[in-house]
């Protein structure tokens, strides 16, 4: 089925996705909170005044690189192909930071936690940011930036 997409990693994607979903379920059923990374990062850094207690937000945010490090160590290294220049990272970071605060969430909060709750807000936000990403990358390709 996926022969047309030789670079795809459907099995790793599904297993890694299940890990992400169980992690979000632990936050929901354990602490009664949404595992929304943008909100927790804003809270951990003190940029947001309300939300999860800072100790919880900081612990979750520290766990993200820790978990990635553990997988990289076990598997002998993971691939991270970053854009070749710093400009897309800075422009992308600024827009992701501003946009996720304005729109109250990102791929984890709206995409995973909200969509699984069938929240209309999250379904609409997710549809919009995926469509916006499609258009952006198509324009980059048309402009010879990819």
């Amino acid at each position: 089925m996926l022969a047309a997409f030789p670079h795809a990693m459907p099995l790793e994607g599904l297993i890694g996705g299940l890990m992400i979903g169980v992690a979000a379920a632990v936050m929901l059923l354990g602490l009664g909170r949404i595992a929304g990374v943008s909100g927790l990062a804003a809270r951990a850094t003190g940029i947001a005044d309300s939300g999860a207690p800072r100790s919880i937000a900081i612990a979750f945010v520290i766990g993200l690189p820790l978990g990635a490090f553990i997988i990289s160590w076990i598997t002998g290294g993971i691939e991270t192909r970053f854009p070749p220049s710093v400009l897309p990272l800075v422009i992308g970071g600024l827009l992701v930071g501003y946009g996720t605060r304005l729109g109250s969430g990102c791929t984890s909060g709206h995409g995973v936690c909200g969509m699984s709750r069938l929240s209309p807000r999250s379904l609409i936000a997710t549809a919009i940011f995926i469509a916006s990403g499609f258009v952006t990358v198509a324009l980059m390709r048309a402009g010879g930036l990819l």
Binding site: I20, A23, M27, A35, G63, L64, A68, S108
Partner: peptide
Amino acid sequence: AGTLFGAGL
């Protein structure tokens, strides 16, 4: 939860 999330990513 954060560690499992990061590992999944």
